[in-house]
């Protein structure tokens, strides 16, 4: 008995060693290229960095750069709140859109493969630098403006917007909704991965559940809320976090471009680090709070 136990322990030990060997590249990389830079950039946020021709010198400066970011820099606080509000609205829009599209794409119809391929195209074509290029495509914007002006009398959406606005109730809220609708292209190209994640979740729900519900007299609408929604609720959490991260790292984010200008243009490493740490911590806090709230509502089947 005792011998067997020690043998088992030996096996477990061997497995543990093998496991560490397997993940050792990650540990090494994590320590070298993540922890060290993170600590360094955190220390830089508290230091005055002087870059010489062959070396750089750090002198402790306290919370000078944080003070600078919050009280002296005119735009930082405004941009931070703007980016955060944009993030909340955008994330909501992406979640609703991708869930809706995944529901449609999970149905059976002709040409489904083609439509799926098209919806997934933005993941490839609008990543990295292409997104930034699209942003300064000013001729297209000019053309769109001209067309809009010429057609403003017959614009259906414009007329509807007017009707809702004059109704007077919750004008601000409506404006946000219109903003999302006007930016539906941005929402559509940002939700490729989320659609795939929702689709993969929808495909794991066994059809016998829907059949049973149907026999019991459940309508499709009820089935959506009572079966589909709880069954993939864990994916809402995943998608929520993924969307926030994706949005916060987009290259057309004005805060990030500001930080890059300060870093590469003005060579002010201290201020740039302080700003990016503030931004990072705000995003992290937001993710932590919201995912805590969402995870309370998540239903686990198993």
């Amino acid at each position: 008995m005792k011998k067997q136990k020690s043998k088992l322990a030996g096996l477990q030990k061997r497995k543990a060693i093998a496991g560490y060997l397997f993940i050792s590249p990650f540990i090494l990389g994590f320590l070298m290229f993540m922890i060290k830079p993170l600590i360094q950039s955190l220390s830089m946020a508290f230091c005055q960095v002087d870059l010489g021709p062959a070396s750089f010198v750090q002198t402790y400066a306290g919370i000078k750069w944080f003070n600078h970011a919050f009280t002296i820099d005119a735009d930082f606080v405004r941009q931070l709140t703007e980016v955060m509000t944009k993030m909340v609205i955008n994330t909501f829009a992406v979640m609703v859109f991708s869930f809706f599209v995944a529901l449609i794409l999970n149905q059976k119809f002709h040409g489904r493969a083609l439509v799926r391929a098209i919806f997934f195209l933005p993941v490839i074509l609008s990543s990295g630098i292409v997104l930034g290029l699209e942003d300064n495509n000013s001729v297209a914007a000019q053309l769109a403006d001209t067309i809009e002006q010429a057609a403003s009398g017959i614009s259906v959406t414009g007329a509807i917007e007017e009707i809702f606005k004059t109704a007077g109730v919750g004008t601000r809220a409506f404006e946000k909704v219109f903003e999302v609708i006007d930016g539906i292209y941005d929402v559509a190209i940002a939700s490729g991965i989320q659609i795939i994640i929702f689709l993969s979740g929808l495909q794991t729900i066994s059809s016998s559940m829907y059949e049973a519900a149907d026999i019991e007299g459940c309508t499709a609408w009820e089935a959506l809320w009572k079966i589909t929604f709880p069954m993939i609720s864990s994916l809402f959490l995943v998608n929520w976090i993924y969307t926030i991260i994706d949005f916060s790292m987009r290259s057309d984010n004005e805060l990030i471009s500001k930080i890059q200008v300060i870093m590469a243009g003005q060579l002010n490493y201290g201020l740039a680090s302080a700003m990016s740490w503030v931004y990072f911590l705000v995003v992290m806090a937001f993710i932590a709070i919201t995912s805590f709230l969402i995870s309370k509502g998540v239903y686990y089947y198993e």
């Binding site: 290229f33 993540m34 060290k36 830079p37 993170l38 360094q40 950039s41 830089m44 991260i245 916060s248 790292m249 990030i256 930080i259 890059q260 870093m263 490493y269 740039a272 680090s273 990016s276 740490w277 990072f280």
Partner: peptide, 9 residues
């Protein structure tokens, strides 16, 4: 962690 955070260092 966004790569921009650690890019300086």
């Amino acid at each position: 962690v966004p790569p921009q955070t650690v890019s300086v260092s």
